[in-house]
Amino acid sequence: MDQPVSRARRSCFAAFGIQGFGFASLITRLPTIKDRFDLSDYEVLAVLGTVAVLSGIGSVLAGYAAARWGSAVVLRLALAAASVCIALIAVPHSLGGLLVTTCSYGLCVGAVDATMNMQGVGIQDQYGRSIMVGFHGMWSLGAVVGGVYATISLELDWSLLPTLLAVSAVGLLLNGLLCRDLLAHDPIDGTTAAGGEGRPRVPWWPVLLLAIPTFVMWFLDSATSAWGGIYLTDGLSASESAAALAFTA
Rank of each mutant, 00 (worst) to 15 (best):
L178I: 02
L95D: 11
S94I: 07
S140D: 10
Y105R: 07
R29W: 06
R201T: 13
R10A: 13
V53F: 10
N175E: 07
L182D: 03
R10D: 06
I152L: 14
M116Y: 00
M116W: 00
A72R: 00
S140R: 09
P31Y: 02
C179Y: 04
T248M: 15
T191A: 14
A66T: 01
H136I: 11
G228T: 08
T115V: 03
A80L: 13
T28S: 12
S40I: 03
G229W: 04
L209R: 13
T214H: 06
R7P: 02
I86S: 11
G106H: 08
M217K: 08
M118L: 12
S168A: 15
S159P: 04
T102C: 15
G120R: 00
T101Q: 02
P162R: 08
N117W: 01
V73W: 12
E155P: 02
L160F: 10
D221Q: 13
G176L: 11
Y64L: 14
Q126W: 00
L165M: 13
L98I: 06
R201C: 08
G120V: 00
A242I: 07
V73Q: 12
V84K: 06
D234C: 01
G110T: 06
A226W: 10
Q19M: 13
G235V: 06
R36W: 01
F215M: 13
R199D: 07
I86H: 10
L178C: 13
L160I: 12
G228H: 10
A15T: 04
A81S: 14
A52V: 12
V53K: 01
S71R: 08
S168G: 09
Y64R: 15
G195H: 07
